[in-house]
């Protein structure tokens, strides 16, 4: 592919912008490795006598591995459950203008409007009755309910952009509705699918409210609850907390880079030709 002139200049600008926006992340990292007291009036920008002690400590003292596995199950589960549901609903909203759909479309947004503190007790009661309380599966269901509206509406935007003639042609060719969505339309909305699956993944990865109210057993802790445990009744383990936060930031970012590289570029190329 021909690179436009000035791509290096763009790179420089992009690097500056991205790094400036990430200063707090950098600072968090510094706090996890520096030996300098946090009570320094003019803290130095570079870490002093950096060491990985905090990382070692948390790996020994806290069940980081278990938090990681639990969080991964919840995040992957949320993506896996919400993507098919969102794609189906979005397609329906985009293509079929029935009364049911226009009502449902707005009602979906309505589910996002109640303060979390009021949801807590009813959802807790609901989950106890259905056996979802204190289960990772329960967190998957709860997170899915809260990622769906965004996912559905964003995907609907992508479906809207695809000419209807395409599905009609597919149907005339003898595809079923399922085949038509899966084989013809899906590849075209892949950028959208990637965007909303990242959205769902990150939301579930970092979710704190359900995680702390709907789970009791320590064996079911996810990272957000684990992180909050670094603040004890009278003390706080500052550098340990920062170290844990740094560790738990890596997976979603790696995942996104991977998807970017292997999926989007290849498939949008296809979409253009389609």
């Amino acid at each position: 592919m021909r690179r436009p002139k000035g791509s290096i200049a763009v790179l420089v600008v992009a690097v500056i912008v991205v790094f400036a926006l990430n200063f707090p992340v950098y600072w968090m990292f510094v706090q996890s490795i520096t030996a300098e007291s946090m009570f320094t009036e003019r803290p130095s920008l570079l870490p002093k006598d950096p060491s990985l002690n905090a990382f070692k400590r948390i790996c020994e003292a806290k069940p980081i591995g278990q938090w990681f596995v639990n969080t991964l199950i919840v995040a992957v589960g949320t993506v896996a459950l919400s993507m098919p549901l969102a794609a189906g609903a979005a397609f329906s909203l985009s293509r079929y203008k029935t009364t049911l759909n226009s009502v449902t479309g707005l009602a979906i947004l309505g589910t996002q409007m109640l303060s979390a503190s009021l949801l807590a007790i009813p959802i807790y009661v609901l989950f106890r009755r259905t056996g979802l309380h204190d289960k990772l599966g329960g967190l998957i269901v709860a997170n899915t309910a809260f990622t769906l509206p965004m996912s559905i509406w964003v995907l609907k935007g992508f479906f809207d952009a695809i000419p209807k003639e395409l599905d009609e042609a597919a149907m005339i060719d003898g595809c079923t509705v399922g085949q038509m969505i899966w084989q013809v339309i899906m590849p075209l909305v892949l950028p959208g699918m990637v965007a909303v699956s990242i959205f769902a993944f990150i939301l579930a990865w970092d979710e704190f409210f359900f995680a702390r109210t709907l789970v009791s057993s320590q064996g079911n802790w996810v990272l957000s609850v684990g992180l909050s445990s670094f603040r004890e009744e009278f003390t706080i383990n500052w550098s340990d907390m920062m170290a844990a936060a740094v560790l738990f930031t890596i997976p979603p970012i790696v995942l996104f880079m991977f998807i970017q590289k292997h999926l989007v570029s290849g498939l949008t190329g296809g979409a253009v030709k389609g």
Binding site: R3, A14, V25, M28, I202, L227, T249, I253
Partner: peptide, 29 residues
């Protein structure tokens, strides 16, 4: 990040850091 330049995929990942970082710790930072 939609412009074409080398290293784009990496920067596209890095720009998500603020979002991906656990909120409790990010706010305390």
């Amino acid at each position: 990040l939609n412009l074409d330049f080398p290293g784009r995929a990496i920067l596209r990942g890095l720009v998500l850091l603020p979002w991906a970082i656990p909120e409790v710790a990010a706010v305390m930072t």
